[in-house]
Design a protein around this nucleic acid. Structure first.
Lengths: 100, 100
DNA sequence: GTCCTATTTTAGTGAACACTATATCATAAA
DNA sequence: TTTATGATATAGTGTTCACTAAAATAGGAC
């Protein structure tokens, strides 16, 4: 599957939105969605293999972050969709709150 | 299915490439691919319903053309992929030849 | 009208893939 | 070393969807 198709998938789009501005643990990402941890981990695996996210180990946890260089061509479209739904903002705020 | 996913599908991407610069009959579009006429017609139907192409009747034939306004946000990405594969150019030239 | 071509539509098939559940692996804490 | 937590990998399921084949629709030529 090519990059455009990978990015087009709605769940992955949302995940990319979450890790766009900064890194985020897999468990925190998963808690934003109504699917199992495993499902999110699979999406992260796909994004990782396509070099669309980077991972950093922090003890037990894996911190993910969008690879903005690789995603540069899609940035405009992704941002457009995040702002359309306002979900990106809502979710990042929600996450920031729960981190306090 | 949203616009990004519609556009991401490889066959539809190629079809959009063919009708990007000018209108083209459904049969001519279909003859560029190794799938049945019906399959291409279905893709055209999807693109039509999403308002990504416009149709004009010319007697028996239906002439399709990309709706560049609606596709504007995706133009850069699509053009990048067409130039990558060179298929877009090859196919449009091939088609122009057969029209002579 | 009857043919022929261009196109759409419908029914059915196969494959891709997002998901669940479970097993496995790795790190941290006891 | 055991126990718990965070994460990945695997097996199996259901749905979506691109495709084929065939039927239906429409326009032009005769």
């Amino acid at each position: 599957m090519d990059t455009l198709q990978l990015v087009a998938e709605p769940r992955r789009r949302e995940i990319l939105g979450l890790v766009w501005d900064g890194e985020m643990a897999a468990s925190d990402i998963a808690s934003c969605f109504d699917v199992t941890f495993g499902a999110v981990s699979q999406h992260l695996s796909v994004l990782r293999k396509a070099n669309l996210v980077t991972v950093r180990k922090d003890g037990n946890r894996r911190l993910y972050r969008a690879n903005q260089d690789a995603l540069a061509p899609y940035k405009g479209i992704l941002e457009g969709m995040w702002s359309d739904t306002l979900q990106h903002l809502a979710e990042t705020i929600e996450n920031a709150e729960s981190d306090k």
